[in-house]
Write a protein that binds this DNA or RNA. Structure first.
Lengths: 408, 408
DNA sequence: CTGAAAGCGCTAACAA
DNA sequence: TTGTTAGCGCTTTCAG
């Protein structure tokens, strides 16, 4: 590691020219076997590793794709316990039993390592927002691997973002950027150098490739299901039990493209149901909108408002995302409102927490893993045909039926 | 994107020399504000993004760290449904209810998009082995971000491995490699160029930095707990109920360093318990070893063997990993053997599946996230002091008590 | 504060 | 089949 050997060193050592060294590494078949062997030997004994930078410079390609994620700013990042890293002798016992009892007093009999281990409470789970990106990351990683690329991941936000983005953009052949991570002008800037694909942002207005998730269709399908279920079962043609449903939509922040798309899907479903009901001589679907902010707390507030309102509790509360829905559930549980017996509640995203709530949350799962994979595929396609018209792909979602909606 | 602008273009456009352009980007304070502004303007209007390759070449540093993971070979990689990507109109409804009923026949009333949606069975969960690497990846990504590095991820195995490793090694300032991913000689080769840290491999024999997880201590602590619990409760001094326990250890493959460390920890706990028992006039702990292979199927076979054996079922089955333990559980459940009433079963790793088994699996959770973070920290440290003696860090683990062991 | 010039290590014509 | 020779785009002395 003193001074990394270069092609020149290898060439000298093997008694050939640098071009031959390069050939041996790039197109071995163009070199006579004996020469090749000699060069390879030198490579071995010198510990030669080609400089990727020089390669990229000279060859104008890197064999690397980039993925740019939002930074981890506001996110709680507990430090590893550096102290214990140095002294790993104490092994904590964590009580992770269901309906876990109060941790019993330590007895010392079961520790043995000579330390007095108590039984600790489990740590809090990891941030669910991250899991979303984790999936994208993994998908991109797998697909890059399959296509023979390495993947460069960077995250940034605030001031570090511009620097980081430039940094990474200069070292990759193509770049996937998550929505909302980079301002449009910066994106446009970078896309003059390399192909850029935008993830999970279906807004029009640029000539870039986009891969997104079908928020509208997902919410529409979910709402349609709710409209058929919430009031107590599928309505067959001729069923004349009054209005189809009485719904509340808990919205997300007004500036979110996701919110816009989902809201639109909701409205479409409602409109269709109303039209159908009218045809059959029923009343329209009644809809109220509560403004939320994608947070659990915002959802809780919305739930409280519904309980406190003089209007009756609706048959279903459709939320713009899972966090909001969990907040609504919190409020309903706190006030003894029966879910799903009295009211159905649904979310959107498919976060882990929704699998463990009571009742478990009916929601729309986004195929984040596929998002990463399709992103890579799109970049690679673009690389082979830079002049093709911009792609706009929409990935299908899945509706996950769980107990927060009445069973069939 | 026709032809990416270079420093020369910017310099010409701004009427300065390329050196000044470079300065504006690297040490803006060394340039007169007006000049700087002029250059920055040119950068903007030309859409200039510096070439990372050229930078790396000239500057001899990349600002990038590498993470090398095992490839995804044998792993089932379901393709995204490319067909549906093109046509996302059909939204499947997935029945994810607990104790889900047979999917009812489709009625068509709830789909609305004009397609006939049935309610599908849920997809299988993702490969648990991957989750392990996911955590390492995320940890490394977060820590890299915190320290201002980008992270380059590559995976390889088989023939692609050597190429990939060389490729990545030539483009990063330091590299973390997961155990078993790269043969030792290759590792030695690469480490002549850049600092390399080996993850989860505590074998001695090289001068590289290592970060591993305390397999031995974790297994020892777990086994100690089992020895105190499995026979029906903690044994207080003076308790004279015969032998402390009758154990089976389901081992992993003989060539696995993990297996070796865990086995050692198990043996240590047993030896200590035997010594204590002997001092108190009890019999030794009885131990049998079944050879497994870290797979669920191998565990199942071991479990079957125990049931079929003429020897009585032991009080506890301690397995070298979670997969094996789940297999043992499978066999016991199939034969109506009561876990944990009749026999305790434990695993090692803390994979997700163990949280959803019946009964839920007592295990040792490895801090994979921290592994990634500490790896990055170690590389960065090494970068600042290349001459320091090799580090050997061991991360502490946690014992997770769940229902597959008798409650206290 | 700015410019000129020498590489950084490799690839890819083009010659031989 | 192998060698020669230009660059690739940037950083970094060293002068001015």
């Amino acid at each position: 590691m003193t001074k990394a050997p270069t092609v020149y060193d290898v060439a000298a050592h093997a008694g050939v020219s640098i071009a031959t060294v390069s050939r041996v590494l790039r197109r071995p078949d163009d070199v006579r076997p004996e020469t090749r062997a000699r060069v390879l030997d030198s490579v071995r004994s010198l510990g030669y590793v080609p400089s990727g930078a020089a390669r990229g410079l000279a060859g104008r390609r890197h064999g690397v794709l980039g993925l740019f994620l939002p930074g981890h700013d506001g996110i709680d990042l507990p430090e590893p316990d550096w102290e214990r890293v140095a002294d790993a002798s104490r092994i904590p016992l964590i009580d992770d039993r269901e309906g876990r009892p109060t941790p019993p007093a330590p007895t010392g009999t079961h520790t043995g390592t000579g330390t007095d281990a108590a039984i600790d409470a489990p740590r809090t789970a990891s941030n669910p927002a991250n899991l979303y990106f984790d999936e994208v990351l993994r998908g991109a990683e797998v697909e890059s691997w399959r296509r023979g690329f390495a993947l460069m991941v960077a995250a940034g936000r605030g001031s570090s973002r511009e620097v980081m983005l430039n940094d990474i953009a200069g070292r990759v052949d193509g770049l996937a950027v998550l929505a909302q991570t980079v301002p449009d002008d910066l994106l446009a800037h970078v896309s003059r150098r390399i192909p850029v694909v935008v993830l999970a942002d279906s807004r029009p207005g640029d000539e870039l490739d986009h891969v997104s998730v079908d928020n509208a269709a997902g919410m529409r399908a979910l709402t349609e299901f709710v409209l058929g279920r919430a009031a107590g079962g599928a309505r067959e043609p001729g069923d004349a039990r009054g209005p189809v449903a009485d719904l509340v939509y808990v919205a997300g922040p007004g500036d979110s493209p996701d919110e816009a798309d989902r809201h639109r899907g909701f409205d479409q479903a409602v409109a269709a149901a109303t039209a159908a009901a009218t045809r059959q001589g029923h009343g329209a679907v009644r809809v109220r909108v509560e403004r939320g902010d994608f947070s659990r707390e915002g959802g809780r507030r919305a739930g409280e408002a519904l309980v406190a309102s003089s209007a009756p509790i609706p048959q279903a509360v459709v939320c713009a995302n899972d966090q909001s829905a969990l907040g609504v559930l919190d409020a309903f549980v706190a006030h003894g409102v029966d879910v799903p017996g009295r009211v159905a509640v649904t979310g959107f995203d498919g976060i882990e927490a929704g699998r463990f709530s009571t009742p478990r949350l009916t929601t729309v799962r986004q195929p984040m893993n596929d998002l990463g994979r399709v992103a890579v595929r799109t970049i690679v396609t673009r690389l082979t045909d830079p002049t093709a018209p911009p792609q706009r792909l929409t990935l299908p979602v899945e509706v996950l039926l769980r107990e927060s909606c009445p069973a069939r």
